[in-house]
């Protein structure tokens, strides 16, 4: 909690500084985004709407559990719809240092199966989000990017900060991105709009944050759209009933509990 308050104060201080000084050092801006306050434990419903270039639509719904621990981020996704994938569970343990681990529970097999940790550039369950996007939570890992920008820009009657990143050689391949340009909300430190290019530098994806909510002191993007500019496919993600849970039952984020299915959100 102390960490959350400190980080929130820093974010407010940062916003005040921006208001006074206009442009900021890109590295400082990136660092503040990376340190953006998050809740230690978070549970909610996740709704995906997948739409192809012809307008054909598919939907996915899942219950998401997320815990930011000292040395690891744990993420469990329990699908609740459509019926064909209901009760399918996915769990990842992303270690800050060391290899990541993932597990999948398919109800038909009655078994929790260790699966290879996905590359950050692999796409998640037919959506336009990569595993890296899911892990990243709209922060830019400082070791992955060389940052430029930091200038003020007017966007729909709002003063936002621009930030650009060029992926390091090591990160380019695993992320599947060569660069990004983003417009950052100085108050929430969330990118309002984000464009990625692919490894060849061609425009690849546009991300738009459509709704942000402050939940227990931390800003969360609760509705956002990801569009693949090369295929025309779009994914709209909406988080509902999000609640923070500092006393989260962490045993639910272990492989042995994945077959239990989605936790009761009450």
């Amino acid at each position: 909690m102390k960490r959350l308050i400190t980080l929130t104060c820093l974010a407010v201080l940062f916003a005040v500084t921006i208001a006074a000084n206009a442009d900021v050092e890109p590295a400082l801006l990136a660092s503040n985004i990376a340190d953006r306050p998050t809740n230690l434990g978070r549970t909610g419903e996740m709704h995906f709407t997948l739409r192809n270039a012809n307008g054909k639509q598919r939907v996915r719904a899942a219950v998401l559990q997320h815990a930011d621990l000292a040395d690891m981020t744990k993420l469990a996704i329990h699908f609740t719809a459509p019926a064909a994938i209901r009760d399918t569970g996915f769990l990842s343990h992303d270690a800050d240092s060391g290899p990541d681990q993932s597990w999948l529970y398919l109800p038909a097999t009655d078994r929790v199966r260790r699966v290879p940790a996905s590359d950050r550039g692999d796409y998640f369950m037919g959506t336009d989000l990569t595993y890296g996007d899911l892990q990243d939570n709209f922060k830019f890992q400082l070791e992955d990017w060389v940052f430029t920008g930091g200038t003020e820009q007017q966007h729909k009657n709002e003063l936002l900060l621009s930030l650009q990143g060029i992926a390091t050689d090591a990160a380019r391949r695993s992320l599947g991105y060569r660069s990004f340009t983003a417009l950052i909300d100085p108050l929430t430190l969330f990118p309002v709009q984000l464009n990625y290019t692919d490894e060849d530098g061609e425009p690849l994806k546009r991300v738009q944050i459509l709704k942000q909510e402050q939940i227990d002191g931390a800003w969360i993007a609760t509705r956002f759209a990801v569009e693949n500019l090369q295929t025309g496919h779009q994914t709209i993600i909406e988080l509902r009933n999000v609640r923070t849970d500092s006393d989260m039952d962490l045993t639910r984020l272990e492989a042995d509990a994945l077959d239990l299915g989605a936790p009761d959100l009450g």
Binding site: P99, S102, R114, V115, P116, A117, D119
Partner: peptide, 11 residues
């Protein structure tokens, strides 16, 4: 025994 090794799992 099973083990994750990057993009592989050994069993």
């Amino acid at each position: 025994w099973d083990r994750t090794l990057g993009s592989m799992v050994l069993r």
